[in-house]
Structure formats: C-alpha cells, structure tokens
Design a protein around this nucleic acid. Structure first.
Lengths: 340, 340
DNA sequence: CTTGATTCCGAAAGCGCTTTCGGAATACGT
DNA sequence: ACGTATTCCGAAAGCGCTTTCGGAATCAAG
C-alpha cells in the first residue's frame, strides 16, 4: 500500500498535483528542469501512481483479459505456458496487466466476457480454442470490445485473429505419407466444433484427393484432445478389416495414445504403422519411438497475439490484423514406408 | 464500455447515487422494497459498476496476482493449467480478478512484485517454484502484502504456504523400491535451489538410511526439470561401473527422458531397471511402459491456495494457513524387482 | 518600450463509486 | 397526546489521479 501519493509528492516539491502529474507523464508543457526534478523526487520517495485512480481518471483499463475455456483434461497444456508467457511479454512491455479468467462452460464464458468488458476491467480480450461458429466473436463485437482470437472461425473476415494453417498442415502430412507409399491413411480427429479440428480433417481429406486416394469415412476416427481419446480411437481403427498403415493424429497427445494402442496390439509405431502427430511438443522427442509431427511455431505466438491486440486496442482496423502461420513437418521416427 | 452509470440508474429511479449504491451493496439501512426495486432496475438497465471507480473508492484491489517465473522449458507445464483453473475458481467465486504476471528472472520478479503491490493493483499474491532460501518471501513481508507460497522455503514458520510432502514422497519411493529387492537405487534430482528438489533428494537419502542402504553421491545425478535433462542424467548413470537397478526421478518429465536413455542403452524400463517418477501426470499412463510415479494431488491445489490467500487477505493470521498434502505411490509398469 | 507569441505552471472540474453523517418521516412506548 | 426510538434516505465529502483552461511570467519582434 503505497503511502506516497501524488499530493504528498507535490507538496514535497512545492508544486501542484496537476503539474507533478503532467511532469511524470511527459507533457510538453512542463519545463525540462522541473520535469527532471519531479522524476528524481518521485523515484527517491518511491512514488507509485495508484493504478485504480489512474484508470478511473483516464477511462483506460490498462489491462487485457485472457479467457480460457476449461473442461478438465481437454486442455492442450503445452500451449498455455508459452501463450501466457508471450502474452505477458507483450502486455507488460506497456506496463499493462494480464487478467486471466477461466470459464467452465460456453455460457459461462459469455457472461465472463460481458462482465470483464462492461465493468471496465479490461480494454481488450484474447480468446482461444475458437469454434467454427463461435458465439463469442459476435458477442464481443456487439460489446464493442477490441479482441483477437487465437484461431479462426469459419468466416474470419471481419475481426482480428491469429492462426496456424491447419488445413495445409494436414494436407502436407498426407502428402508425405503418400510419398512414402501409404495408401491406407487414417485420421484421428478432434471435436469438430473446434475449427482447428475441422480444418485438419478437411486438410486430411484434401491431401487424399491430391494423391487420388479414396476418402473413406471409416478411416476417420473421432477423439477428444486427450491421450485416452487417441488410445480409444486407435483401438477402433484396429478393428477395421482393412487396417490403416498410417495415421495422422490431430495432436501429439492423441498420437501418443494411439501409439500405445498400437503397441498393445503388437504393432510397432514407425515400423508396422506410421504415425504423425501435430504440435511439435518437446515431449515427442522422448516417446518411443520418437514422434514425427507437424510442428507449429508457438514460441512467439503469444507475444505476437499480444501485440496484435494492443494494436487493435489502439484503434487499428481489426481486419488488418489477421495472421496465418505455417506448421512444419518434423520427421522423427514414426514415419516410414508401409510394411511390404 | 458500460454507459449505464450509477448516476443514470439513480435518476432513473428518482433516488440518490448513494442510496442506490447502498441498495446494491446490501446495506441494512435500505428498505427491502426499494432494495428490490433498485436491483430490478439495475439488471434491467444492465448496470455494471465500474470496477476502477469502486476499487478507488474502497481502496480494495479486488484482485490477486499470480507471478510465475519463466525460464523457457523449465516450466512444469502440467501444473499451470490446473493451478490457474483452481485459483480462478476460488477467486472468481468472490468476483475478483486473477492477474497473471510472468517474470524472466529473479530480479525481474522482485520488481514485478513491488509494482503490483505498491500500485494497488492486487490485494494479494501467490508465488510458485519456491526456493529453499527465497528472497521473495521477505520482500513481500516487507511490502506488507498478503501472500501464499506454493511450496515452502527452508524456514517456513511465519507465512502462509501450501506444499506437498516431497521428503516423505521420496522416502516412500525408496522404501518401495527397496522392498522390491533393490539395493542400487539412484536419484535424478532437480536444481537444488528449488526447495522441492532439495527435499526430494533429502527424502531419497533418508529412505536409503531407513533401509540401511549406502548413500552414494555417485548415484545422485543432477538434472534440470526437462526431459532432456533426465535423458542426460541417465546417460551419466549408465556410465557407472556399478550400474543402478532402480532410479527415482524428480519428476515424470525427467523420468520420461531417463527411460529413453535406458532404451537406447538396451535396457528395458520396468524390466531391467525400475523407474519411479513424480507428479502423477496423465501422460505417464501412455509412456511405454506406463510410468510408476508418486502422484501429487494437484486438482484441488489451485482452488485451495486461492482460498487460503483470500483468508489471509481478509486478515487471517498467515501462520494458520500452512498445509502439507501427501503424494501417493501410483504403481504402473516401471517398478519391478531387480533382474536376478 | 510596447505588442504578440511562447513557456510554464496553478486552479479546478471531474472520473464513478463508497460511506459517513444527519435529519425527516414513521414507529413505538406510556 | 407526548417524547423517544427506529427506519430509511439525501447530502456531501472524498478515493488519487488526469486534463482542460487560463493567466502570469518570459521571450522575441516591431
């Protein structure tokens, strides 16, 4: 609790509060000499402007919110740390705050967004795990609060977003598998209301078409985003009479689960069956065998998203801030030609 | 941006701002009838009190800060999500905010704490990854800001903390291994300035003594908290002429790395060599073979820590809020008797 | 030396809400 | 009927900072 208030500082200096305030905020109508004097005294006395007073006076929240959906286990953990770290970097460069809110349900999330926005607690938001048809987008637009979405919806024309080319990534994965000689390529996909999952499935199918391979619904297994999900989906695929020789999985986590099912079934990943994951988690280097994956660049993503948001908050046209990055095939040990 | 202000609402009702305010905040000097009338109108007009104004007036930040150290890769990701989720739960039950700040260095972190506290942005803090001798503790005490530490220091008498009995966990792990018949038990430990790492090492040693086994410094390999670290440490242990038949690792991540090194060396984890991890990550169920581990209960930890902090912020004696939980041995497939 | 332009700072009005205080209106007691 | 308690609400003073406005002092120009 800072006892050094503007008033205290100002009468210590024999100046008005207004003058001191302007000096600190680098107004040009303050002489350089007194400005220096003020700043010096400020640091000496350890003056810290009260954020709430400042925010009230300026009407700016100096804070961005990050609301993340939380259905236990379903979370792609690895992202979180990197994302938060990057966001925090961008945000704190401006001495703003990062307000993290966890929602328990979709409805919950909408009301959280409303509260955050209407109570003036945040001046911008970033959301993640975007759905193909995501009510949050319109909701935020109606509220008139700046935001950027980590992931696109199906119609991403008029708002700011950051995304990875999921479609392209899986198209490439299938191409790669096909080049190796595979013709029976399966896909374990995630919940299709997530746009990234839908895109990856679409990319997978397109990849098949590119290579004149059949698109067979039986080769598409649904899973949640957990290892257990991948395990179960793979077990299903193993019941097929025409068993796939290659699987591309919606995520590394899912791939790990799938590999376990394969091993239990006596099949060696990377030998009897090829497996390709997605994410490029460091974890994949240490699975047995090491997991081939489409690695997405998430180290700088958070920071980038943060900067995009700041730009939008500053008044930039959201449409100017739409970025699509690419994943890159990272070959390790689980991709190989089909057994002869 | 809420346009419905207290003033608007009050003159809409033909009341004073003060009266409306008290009605909304359930002051007892407002008649039940008008209170209802006010609340009804409030929700109808969609009134949202401006948080910053409220915070300024009350002097309460209605916000707790979570500052987490970030040296890329070193993070125990799995915690983050659970922790944040739990914290957010506890915090938002009171309609408070969760301010997350990421620090890049120890020095950085101290200044972040200072800023957060002195600018009145938070009314309490939680820190994590506590060191045996952690400057943050004293720093926060000096600042007079309420806090709870996730993890204890070496002298945890006079502040609030939440911790797992790391010492006991590793003591138990060694006991278990010894019961299985092992006598050559190694330990891959984490950076010893982290108190949890030091405690686990101490617990390991104590476990050895319990069973009248030798404490051999050569059997203690240092690692960082990553899979790579575990890999490298294990490779070192494999160079010993007296090779260990069992390894207890400071974390599941580290254990996974160690298992990889073992496999590369032609040794099968859970068969030729026993491996025990720590954390109980779901991931461990899907490693090959599934990882035996000391599982720590982190599902409710975050919420609990949040509630502890709220209590301390409310004025509770921090000393009354010190909790030690236990990890539990979760046997999967990597613990077995030593090969004969 | 006067005039008009600059510099630089003081004064004051908020930002939107909370909270103490006092008093009018109503209730209670005898 | 009186006086004394209670209820319930209006009035007003902040919380600590920002920002517009105007004016005194300093400057350059005629």
């Amino acid at each position: 609790m800072s006892k050094v208030t503007l008033k205290a500082l100002s009468q210590h200096l024999g100046l008005t509060e207004g003058t001191v305030s302007r000096a600190i905020n680098d107004y040009k109508d303050i002489s350089p000499s007194t400005r220096e004097r003020v700043k010096k005294a400020a640091t000496e006395l350890g003056y810290r402007p009260n954020s709430n007073a400042r925010r009230l006076a300026t009407g700016k929240a100096e804070c961005v919110g990050f609301v993340l959906p939380w259905q236990a286990g379903t979370i792609s953990e690895p992202f979180l740390g990197e994302l938060l770290s990057g966001l925090s970097d961008a945000i704190s460069a401006r001495h703003w705050d990062l307000n993290v809110a966890v929602s328990r349900s979709a409805k919950d999330e909408l009301s959280i967004i409303t509260r955050l926005a209407q109570s003036g607690r945040v001046s911008g938001l970033v959301i993640s795990r975007t759905l193909s048809h995501d009510p949050r987008i319109e909701h935020m637009q109606n509220l008139g609060i700046p935001f950027v979405s980590h992931g696109r919806t199906a119609s991403p024309e008029d708002y700011a977003w950051f995304d990875i080319d999921n479609f392209g990534a899986f198209r490439e994965a299938v191409w790669h598998l096909s080049e190796l000689g595979h013709t029976q390529i399966a896909h374990i996909h995630g919940p299709l209301d997530y746009n990234f999952a839908a895109s990856r499935l679409a990319g997978y199918r397109r990849g098949l078409l590119d290579r004149n391979l059949d698109v067979d619904p039986a080769m598409e297994a649904k899973s949640d985003m957990t290892q257990d999900g991948g395990y179960l989906a793979m077990r299903y695929l193993l019941t097929l009479n025409q068993c796939p020789t290659a699987i591309c999985c919606v995520s590394d986590m899912v791939a790990v689960g799938a590999m376990r099912a394969l091993r239990e079934h006596g099949k060696m990943p990377g030998k009897d069956v090829s497996v390709i994951g997605y994410d490029g988690l460091p974890m994949g280097e240490h699975t047995h065998p090491a997991l081939t994956t489409m690695a997405q660049p998430l180290q700088m993503a958070g920071k980038h998203i943060g900067e995009m948001l700041l730009a939008v908050v500053d008044g930039d046209d959201p449409k100017k801030h739409q970025e699509l990055w690419n994943a890159t095939l990272t070959r390790r040990e689980t991709d190989c030609p089909p057994p002869s």
